[in-house]
Amino acid sequence: MFVLTAFVSCDEVGDTDPGGTSTESMAGDWYVQTLRNGTVVSDYGLISTFNTAANDGKEFWIDDHLFNVWGFKVKTPLTLSSMSFAGNNLASSVVDDVAATPDVIETYEVNVNITEGKITKNGATSTGGHTVDGIYFKAEFSDDPGTIYEVKGYKRTGFIEDEH
């Protein structure tokens, strides 16, 4: 009986490799600095870039994880072949459920213009000295029109010396 169940329990269920997403070459967690007129206004906040549900390689999400840069999460058009991204009047609505007042959930809505977005393979050096992918873009927010912020940084490595 044992021998019979051993053969049955080894049944393969097919291909278990889930594959990747259309934007995986541009996706990740990034430690970025935000600058205004060349001066750092936010030092090494965490943002993420990741695929949309459409998985069509035409856009991806940029999420600043609730005010690490400004308070935005937008779908941004991209060009995979040049690893670039940009978009105008991108709508963002984020929920702040850790507001200063307990039991209060606030929604923050803003439109974002993103220009000159680029991810560069092995184009940055982490604070720990590792060669990693770099990210750069300019952003203008509808609640601060006319002010252009530069956001630049490196892909998160997981090494303790690179964490902020």
Score class of each variant (00 low, 15 high):
residue 60 F to C: 00
residue 123 G to W: 05
residue 76 T to A: 06
residue 19 G to V: 15
residue 112 V to G: 13
residue 149 Y to P: 11
residue 11 D to L: 11
residue 60 F to G: 01
residue 128 G to R: 09
residue 62 I to K: 01
residue 48 S to P: 06
residue 94 V to R: 01
residue 145 P to G: 03
residue 73 K to D: 11
residue 38 G to Y: 07
residue 83 M to C: 11
residue 141 F to E: 05
residue 94 V to P: 04
residue 92 S to N: 07
residue 78 L to E: 07
residue 144 D to R: 12
residue 7 F to K: 06
residue 30 W to R: 00
residue 158 G to C: 04
residue 115 T to A: 14
residue 69 V to W: 15
residue 46 L to C: 09
residue 19 G to H: 15
residue 102 P to Q: 06
residue 58 K to S: 07
residue 155 K to C: 06
residue 135 I to K: 01
residue 46 L to M: 14
residue 37 N to T: 09
residue 56 D to L: 12
residue 134 G to H: 07
residue 45 G to K: 04
residue 101 T to I: 14
residue 21 T to N: 06
residue 163 E to W: 14
residue 134 G to I: 08
residue 68 N to W: 10
residue 58 K to A: 08
residue 23 T to K: 02
residue 75 K to N: 13
residue 123 G to S: 01
residue 130 H to S: 03
residue 23 T to G: 05
residue 70 W to T: 03
residue 106 E to Q: 13
residue 33 Q to W: 10
residue 108 Y to W: 15
residue 144 D to C: 03
residue 100 A to I: 01
residue 27 A to H: 07
residue 161 E to M: 08
residue 105 I to V: 10
residue 131 T to L: 14
residue 13 V to K: 02
residue 102 P to N: 05
residue 64 D to Y: 09
residue 11 D to S: 10
residue 11 D to G: 08
residue 90 L to A: 14
residue 24 E to Q: 13
residue 91 A to D: 02
residue 3 V to D: 03
residue 36 R to F: 00
residue 130 H to V: 01
residue 98 V to Q: 07
residue 39 T to L: 05
residue 90 L to D: 14
residue 142 S to H: 08
residue 157 T to V: 13
residue 32 V to L: 08
residue 71 G to M: 06
residue 23 T to M: 08
residue 95 V to L: 05
residue 94 V to C: 06
residue 84 S to T: 15
residue 61 W to Q: 07
residue 130 H to P: 03
residue 64 D to Q: 11
residue 1 M to K: 09
residue 78 L to Q: 02
residue 57 G to W: 13
residue 98 V to A: 14
residue 163 E to Y: 14
residue 58 K to Q: 05
residue 76 T to H: 04
residue 28 G to I: 08
residue 41 V to K: 10
residue 28 G to R: 02
residue 16 T to W: 13
residue 28 G to K: 04
residue 37 N to C: 05
residue 63 D to Y: 02
residue 55 N to Q: 02
residue 150 E to Y: 04
residue 99 A to Y: 09
residue 18 P to K: 06
residue 149 Y to H: 04
residue 127 T to Q: 12
residue 4 L to C: 12
residue 146 G to N: 14
residue 48 S to W: 11
residue 38 G to R: 00
residue 136 Y to C: 02
residue 18 P to I: 04
residue 2 F to N: 14
residue 41 V to R: 14
residue 136 Y to Q: 07
residue 130 H to C: 00
residue 40 V to T: 11
residue 22 S to T: 07
residue 45 G to F: 01
residue 93 S to K: 12
residue 51 N to P: 13
residue 121 K to L: 13
residue 79 T to C: 13
residue 132 V to M: 11
residue 96 D to Q: 10
residue 7 F to M: 14
residue 64 D to H: 04
residue 15 D to Q: 00
residue 159 F to H: 11
